[in-house]
């Protein structure tokens, strides 16, 4: 442990990143336990300023709901979207990338051309079109992100595999008659996890921002479910008379995304020093 503290991997970035990410995740996961029954509508307690009443440290919103409770509960949507979309993209992307890189052929063409198309489509414009068709919901937002992002992982993994498959340990395994499936799972996969993890961390951050943008544009989820983007959009109306309604959720997004970005940046230095995951 003390060796780690002295190593080059240990830095301010790492402490801040880990601290923010873990801290906020903890608050969000246990929000219903930390604030039982809070966040209910009370039209007699509208727009109370923060730090006035001990029951509402961050004040209340236009419907008299406790802002602090909603900020923590709202993180649940953001974290869900962030993590689920990334895990989904990774599962598809890594599998396709491995197959494409190892076997080449038609899969290779599919990956490369999908990558071209994905790069060429302006995401938010496409998103507002699709959401207009299917309606806004948590599932739809996640699906949309997976559809548009899996190919990033596929491309990354494919490039890695192309380099790795010429390496001695893979050639040796092939010569010894090890099955392709085992070569992929035992020899290739572990060697390309680093860059994938880095890209995952940065994309969780990115997707939290994208989700809040979509909700802000009015394409989000059920307004009774608190979400950071939705709170920001609603709070814009009250910005000049009740800043706390939008400033606290804004800070929550900023700190969460910052934590993940710091962590991702640090992971990149540690796991991927050559910078293959540059976005």
């Amino acid at each position: 442990m003390s060796a780690f503290l002295k190593s080059r991997y240990f830095s301010l970035e790492f402490i801040m990143g880990l601290g923010l990410t873990l801290g906020i995740t903890f608050c969000v996961l246990f929000s219903s336990w930390l604030f039982p029954g809070a966040g209910e509508i009370d039209l007699t307690a509208r727009l109370i300023a923060p730090f006035q009443q001990p029951a509402h440290p961050f004040g209340t919103d236009p419907l008299g709901r406790d802002v602090m409770a909603r900020v923590f509960a709202g993180g649940w949507i953001s974290l869900q979207v962030g993590f689920v979309s990334v895990v989904g993209s990774v599962l598809i992307g890594v599998a396709v990338g491995l197959v494409a890189g190892y076997y080449r052929g038609i899969w290779d063409v599919v990956v490369m051309r999908s990558a071209d198309i994905q790069l060429a489509l302006p995401f938010i414009l496409l998103a507002i079109t699709i959401i207009a068709i299917v309606g806004g919901s948590l599932t739809n937002t996640i699906l949309l992100l997976i559809v548009s992002q899996w190919v990033q992982y596929a491309r990354l993994v494919r490039a890695q595999v192309l380099a790795l498959r010429e390496r001695e340990f893979v050639l040796a395994a092939q010569a010894m008659g090890v099955k392709s499936r085992n070569i992929i799972l035992q020899h290739l996969l572990p060697n390309l996890l680093g860059p994938v993890i880095v890209l995952m961390t940065l994309n969780v951050a990115n997707n939290i921002l994208l989700e809040s943008s979509l909700t802000f544009l009015g394409l989000g989820v059920d307004p009774t479910i608190p979400s950071w983007g939705g709170m920001l959009a609603d709070g814009r109306t009250y910005l000049q008379t009740a800043w706390w309604v939008s400033v606290f959720p804004g800070l929550a997004i900023l700190l969460t995304v910052l934590g993940l970005n710091l962590l991702g940046d640090w992971l990149r230095d540690s796991l991927d020093p050559t910078g293959r995951t540059e976005r």
């Binding site: 209910e40 509508i41 039209l43 236009p62 419907l63 959401i131 207009a132 309606g135 806004g136 009015g218 394409l219 989000g220 059920d222 307004p223 009774t224 959009a233 609603d234 109306t237």
Partner: peptide, 30 residues
């Protein structure tokens, strides 16, 4: 989905319905 004022009204309506034992969910559309 884009009606900021009504958005708040519906949430209040849903809360009132909740008080007589009817659970209201809100699904906004474009």
């Amino acid at each position: 989905g884009n009606d900021a004022t009504f958005n708040e009204v519906t949430q209040a309506v849903a809360a009132y319905l909740g008080m007589v034992g009817v659970t209201a969910t809100i699904k906004p559309y474009e």
